[in-house]
């Protein structure tokens, strides 16, 4: 099971507690999170299931893409770039 945690900035908009879910890739892990939290999907992926442009996913300390592999002891962190006035 990988541990998935979301930025506090996202918690302001949608319920997204940290969860432990199975999955062999970033996308597979996130899909398992969304299976129990459908609204959350649209905050992370766009209409075509692409990672939103300003949303970042890290696996442990490395930035990752949806197809990157995930191990059972890995930690995934989803957060966004903040900018603007």
């Amino acid at each position: 099971m990988a541990r998935v945690a979301f930025t506090g900035n996202l918690k302001r908009h949608v319920d997204c507690p940290a969860v432990d879910v199975p999955g062999a890739s970033v996308r597979a892990v996130l899909e398992n999170v969304f299976a129990g939290n459908a609204l959350l999907r649209s905050y992370v992926f766009d209409d075509q299931d692409r990672l939103r442009r300003h949303v970042n996913v890290y696996v442990n300390e490395k930035r990752a893409e949806p197809d990157d592999p995930v191990g059972p002891r890995d930690e995934i962190f989803v957060f966004q770039s903040l900018a603007g006035g």
Binding site: V14, D46, D47, Q48, D49, R50
Partner: peptide, 17 residues
């Protein structure tokens, strides 16, 4: 929060959002 309008999924990697 309701479902927002979204485009159907396509095979095009540049598909609309």
């Amino acid at each position: 929060e309701m479902a927002a309008p979204s485009f159907p999924k396509t095979d095009d990697r540049n598909g609309p959002s």
